[in-house]
């Protein structure tokens, strides 16, 4: 089952731990915040995680100093 790494931008402070742990999925933007290399339908707040990166993603969720990350099997959200 593929997982999704959700970034809570209201918590994220761009400390860079997740981008170190998931270099294939995340870059850092100009201000240090994680930048998903691939968007899913224009959404870069829920990053698809392949099983190969599942362990590193779990590590990132655990170590994020702002507790801004979470993993889920699927994510849905309404617009406005």
């Amino acid at each position: 089952m593929s997982e999704t790494l959700h970034i809570d931008w209201t918590r994220c402070d761009g400390r860079g731990l997740c981008t170190e742990l998931l270099p294939t999925l995340l870059d850092r933007d100009d201000w240090g915040y994680p930048l998903a290399k691939r968007a899913t339908n224009g959404d870069r707040s829920n990053v698809a995680v392949r099983p190969a990166h599942s362990e590193a993603a779990r590590e990132a969720v655990y170590l994020c100093p702002k507790m801004a990350l979470s993993l889920a099997n699927q994510v849905a959200g309404f617009g406005q």
Binding site: I7, D8, W9, T10, D29, D30, Y33, L35, A36, A39, G42, D43, R44, S45, G79, Q80
Partner: peptide
């Protein structure tokens, strides 16, 4: 492109 899809709401988009 950098700000799009990255926020709690769609303000940057």
């Amino acid at each position: 492109r950098m700000v799009t899809g990255r926020g709690a709401c769609h303000h940057p988009d």
